[in-house]
Structures are given as C-alpha cells and as structure tokens.
Design a protein around this nucleic acid. Structure first.
Lengths: 234, 234
DNA sequence: GTCTATACATAGATAGAC
DNA sequence: GTCTATCTATGTATAGAC
C-alpha cells in the first residue's frame, strides 16, 4: 500500500496551487489584481477561516476574528470576497473539486477492480488527512450553503459514492465481489472514510496512524465484499 | 429482529417524560414552578430549538427566532433557562443520558454475545431514528459546548464505543468473534450507527427503511467479526 | 407567568483617506 | 491595495407593566 508521504509527492497539491486555482476561478470577484499578492493573501484568509471555523463554527466567526487571524484589515478582506457567504462557497467548492479529481485519478490508475476499490479508499483517506481542516469544514458547514451551493454539495457527495458503487457493480459482474446492494455498500464505505476526518481527534489521541486506519478499512470492507478471500494488504 | 414500532412500545420514551426529567434536573434554574406548565413549555422550546438549529445551526438561531418558533416571548424564554449556552447544555446532556441508558438496558437484556452485539446495533439505530433531531443536534453542536460540557460529551462518546468493544472482547474470549482490534472495530461500528442520523436525508430520499438499515449494518459487521459463519437476521 | 419596551454589544458591510 | 472610521442591522439580555 502506498504511504502517505509517497501519496503527497504523487498528487503534489500545494496550498499555493489550490489558492491560485481559486483565484483563477473567481478573478472577476476579486478586486486585487497582482496574482502573487492574491495567492499569498488568499492562503492567509483560508488558513484563518478554517482554523477559526473548525473550532467554533463558520457563523460564529466574525469578520473581526478573521481580520485578526489573517493579519488583514476588514476593509482589505472585502477586496478578496464580496461577503461572508461567498467566502464559504469558495472554500467549499474548491474542496469538492479537488476531492473528485484526485479520487477519480487514483481509481483510474489502478489496474484491476479489487485494486481500484483499495485505491479509492486509500486516496480518500490520505486526501482527507492532508487536507483535514478543509474536509472537516466542508462537512460541518454544508448546511449554511445557499440553495444552489447546497445542490452542488449533495451532487458531489452522491458522485463520490457512485465511484465506489460503480467499482462494486463491475466487480460483481466479473465475479470478484459478492455484493447484494452496491449503493448501500458504497454509502457505508463512505461513512467509514468520513469517520477519519470527522473524528480525527479520537484517532490522534489513540495514536492510530493514517496508514493503519486505511489498512483497517480495506480489511473491513473486503471482509464484506470478498468473503472467504482475504488478500494481504502490503 | 425487533421492529421499530415494537421498540417504541418497549422503551416508552415520550417527549413529556424527557422534558419532565430535564425539569427535575434543572429545577433550581427554572423560574416557573408549576410542573405541568414547565413541561408543556419546555417541549415547545426544545422542539423549536431542534427544528431551527438543525436547519441553520444553533449559533445562527437567534432568541427572536426561538421566541417565534416556540410561541413564547423573549422575556418568557428567560424563565426557562438563564442563557443560550444553558439551553444548549440542557438538550445535549439529556440526549446523552437517554442514549446510554437505553443502549445499556437493551444490551444487558440480550442472552448471548452475538445477540448483544445485534441488540446494541439495533437499539442505537432505532433510538436515533425516534429521536433523530436530538441526535443530529448533539452531533453537530458538540463543538459549541464549554470545556466542562465538552469533556462530558467526549466521555459519553467513548462510553458508547466501549459498550461495543466490551462485547467484542468477551466474544473473542469465548471464541464467538474473530477480532484483532476490538477498539478499532467498535469505532467503525459507531461510525456506521452515526451515519443513519447524520445522513438521514439520503436514506429518506432512497426509501431505505430503518429496519433495512439495521439489518444491513448487522450483516456488514458480522461479516468482519464472524467470518464464514453467517446467521439469518430474522 | 408572560408580555412589551428597551439597553447595550457586536455583527456585516462600506466610504474615503492614505 | 490597505487602512481607519463609521453606518445600520441584529444579537443577547433585562426591567418593569400587566
């Protein structure tokens, strides 16, 4: 199984790259025009937003809190977004896009279906480890989205799940998996992936490494979908 | 397997009983003294709090919102709690106590260890179905608790998990379960129980009944802890 | 016990100086 | 580009009439 640090090298998602992507997507809404400056300040704004929101909630974070945390005045903040709601949407959308992209990439790169299942599980857990604050934020603040953004969030949730459901269905056809209800199975797999970043504090306090967790989930899932055919997880 | 309506009759947790219990626990803080009136109004206050908070978050719920939702003036609200934080703590604590009590009761009543495991799973899922708004609220608003309340919430989370871990450990000694890591296994079982109330919208839209979900989780867990020994879930 | 009226703090957002 | 100062709305909480 790939290790976390190998994964990091492989996907090379630097904070700068993510902020640059967000800048490009939202160029018309951002008043500041020098890319270097925008990227640098967006990174500070997002870091502070995630840090404060994940402690007490996005709604409870005032823009004065954010101003202090990001080291920018309130006036300056409004050069990077038109309002608090937009800041929320920017962070959420970027997180979703990144997840889907990396997950699909990693699954496609794997040779067989059992490998694809494993690759999907590992990719999701590692990604949520590297970007834990981002994942936690998306999860906890989804209900504060407006109608349109909410729809996008739900679609993304379903899409991720379908990646796993599709693998299971194909595997069933090929006789690799025994799975009566691929959608339900995919839903529970997803629940076990979310557990890693939602309850991160618990595993940290118990000293559970991310590789161990991934291995455990793979064993857990395969006991259900490949009964009687255990296969070592290297 | 017990059905939801049988479960409801068995545990007989009426909203009135819960509110009465809360009243008794918090009698010194509640200014109104006629029990009937207190119970009636607490029910309205909690219903409104859960309904509003579960849509947009407890912090985003203003006391003006709550006043309108509960049909009481803002002045009257303050006869039932000393501040918003206390309202939060009251709801959280009561939910925790109820969960622990019913879960332990149901597990103790089951004859063997495999039955205990199943009883625990079913009890938790059914309980979270009957009290879905309460469970969702506890889950989402835990981070808004003060230090002391937070400690209690974490202890409760761990305790629930240990109920399952203990069953698994005992079952391993008796040769009923094959489980290398009871704590980790219990943690993942709990994640699958939480899924039911955290993502209730998903299963509702797919028409998944609570009995089907419980059956699925039992099958899923037993595939891991009783490999090669499936047993019908009646 | 419950209401209305109100005090006082803090929220998001913007204008205009630098 | 960024800052300070300030506007207006909304928040929690309470006092005192009924």
């Amino acid at each position: 199984m790939i290790t976390l640090s190998e994964f990091k090298n492989l996907v090379s998602l630097s904070k700068r790259d993510i902020c640059r992507e967000i800048y490009v997507e939202n160029a018309e809404k951002i008043k500041v025009k020098k890319e270097d400056r925008v990227v640098k300040n967006l990174a500070k704004i997002f870091d502070a937003t995630l840090a404060i929101s994940n402690k007490k909630g996005f709604h409870a974070m005032s823009l004065r809190n954010l101003s202090e945390g990001a080291g920018l005045s309130m006036g300056a903040l409004y050069s990077y977004f038109t309002g608090k709601d937009e800041l929320l949407a920017m962070i959420q959308e970027q997180g979703r896009r990144l997840t889907t992209r990396i997950l699909v990439e990693q699954v496609e790169a794997a040779p067989g279906l059992r490998e694809k299942l494993r690759a999907g599980i590992v990719a999701h857990i590692y990604l949520s480890e590297v970007m834990q604050p981002w994942f936690y934020f998306s999860f906890m603040e989804a209900r504060n989205l407006d109608k349109k953004q909410m729809k996008a969030a739900i679609e993304s949730e379903i899409l991720t799940e379908q990646v796993f459901a599709d693998i299971l269905r194909s595997g069933r056809e090929e006789g690799i998996f025994e799975v009566a209800d691929p959608d339900m199975t995919a839903a529970l797999i997803k629940a076990n992936l979310q557990e890693w970043y939602v309850k991160r504090w618990k595993y940290r306090s118990r000293g559970v490494a991310v590789e161990d967790y991934a291995r455990f989930v793979i064993g857990w899932v395969e006991a259900f979908v490949c009964p009687g055919r255990p296969l070592a997880i290297e």
